[in-house]
Structure formats: structure tokens, C-alpha cells
Design a protein around this nucleic acid. Structure first.
Lengths: 101, 101
DNA sequence: CGCTGACATCAGCACAACCTGACGTTATCA
DNA sequence: TGATAACGTCAGGTTGTGCTGATGTCAGCG
């Protein structure tokens, strides 16, 4: 398993971050919008956005004093493909357990 | 976002659990095999298997004094589809940011 | 039956993660 | 240029999570 897969799943393993990702899937948003839409504190949102940024899930483009965030679709696709691949392998391996020697 | 998505991503957000899922994608294994293959302690593996079980990612079928675990492909497919859907939406929303009013 | 091995649960500790309040930086506007 | 608003960072307290050792349960085997 790639280390990227691990960091991506960990970045998604928080309800607020998952909510932010969901919001960014619909439209680009700046931090203040995310703060309004989620009801979370500004500092909190900023910290979570940092985690998502470090994981490569979102990118920030500063416009004046605002920071617009957008989702990186390729990062989501990469994880989606990895999981689909695991599922496909699991489907063909379900019938024969390794014997306990 | 569904609550199931959240619990699934959280269950995968650990390197050892991710490794276990990867191993189970290839073949059914009992706890002692997983302990050998990962090098982790038996108690540790058992705890992680419980998390994966609670998240619906694996199922255990007891055979004698052994417990064989297998991956639930449908759980992985569900998460994979959710992520792919988000990525698809993000791809079509990348060009128009919401104005900061 | 007693013993051993596979597995789970429980209690405890160490560390990481999340949340908040205070502060600093930068950009816009009167 | 002073005020304000957006955003980030830092320090703290609290909660959660992973790992371990001890203990309990149950199945197979001599």
C-alpha cells in the first residue's frame, strides 16, 4: 500500500474535514464561506484546511485577502481506484482460506 | 455525507489497519496469520480487527478455535463510489468560485 | 480431564489529534 | 494612514486513539 493512500485516508478520517471536502466538491469556497457553512470556528477550519492541504486533497489560491480553496479531483480518484482494486481482489479471493498449519 | 462514509474512512485511517485490509484483499486469513504477517502483537491485531469489524469492513467466521477474517468488498466499493462521485463533481465545479459578498 | 494454543476483553499508559483563545500578517477601504 | 476584516500560526487544555500486559474463554489433544 502506498504511503499516499495512508495520508489521504487519514486526512478524510474526520467529520469536519469530510464535510469540507463535500462542500468543495460542489464549488470553490474561501475560508470565510466554509466557516459559515460548517458553523465551526475560524481557527479550527484553518487548521483542518492545513491538514487537507498537506495531504494534497485541496489547493489554496490567494485572491487579495481571501483564500479560495478547491478540491484536487485526482487525489480523490487515486484513492477511489485503490479501494476499487482492493475490492476487486477481495471478490476473487473470498472462497479459499489459507489453512492454519 | 453518510455517517457510514465517515466510519469507514476512520477505520482505514491507520497504517496497521490499512495493511490488514490489504492482506485480506488477497486471501482469507485467521488472526494468527495476520499477527505473523504484520509482526504486530496479538492483542493489538485483535483490537484493530474489532475496529474493522465494527466499521463493517471485515467479517469474522469462527472455525474451531480459529477466526477466519474476510474482506467485505461491498463496503470498499461503497466508499470508492462515494469518492469517485465527489471527484466527478469537483471536476465540473473547478472554474467558478463563489464571490465573497 | 488437564494442558496448550487461538482469540477476545479489560485496565493502564503514552502519544497524537482536535478545539479554542490570543496574537501576527496582509490586504482593502475610508 | 489608521481601521477593519480575512487568514494563518502558536500555545494551552482536553479528549481520543494506539499499544501493551494481564486475564478470561473456548476448542482441540494427549
Amino acid at each position: 500500500m502506498s504511503a499516499e493512500t495512508d495520508s489521504t485516508t487519514r486526512a478524510l478520517a474526520d467529520p469536519l474535514r469530510l464535510r469540507i471536502v463535500e462542500l468543495l466538491a460542489n464549488e470553490q469556497l474561501c475560508t470565510c464561506h466554509i466557516v459559515e457553512l460548517t458553523g465551526a470556528g475560524q481557527t479550527n477550519v484553518s487548521n483542518h484546511l492545513r491538514v487537507l492541504r498537506d495531504a494534497g486533497l485541496v489547493v489554496a489560491e490567494p485572491v487579495g485577502r481571501y483564500s479560495y480553496y478547491r478540491l484536487r479531483a485526482d487525489a480523490l480518484v487515486a484513492l477511489s481506484d485503490t479501494l476499487a482494486n482492493l475490492a476487486a481482489r477481495a471478490g476473487s479471493a473470498e472462497q479459499r482460506p489459507r489453512p492454519c498449519d
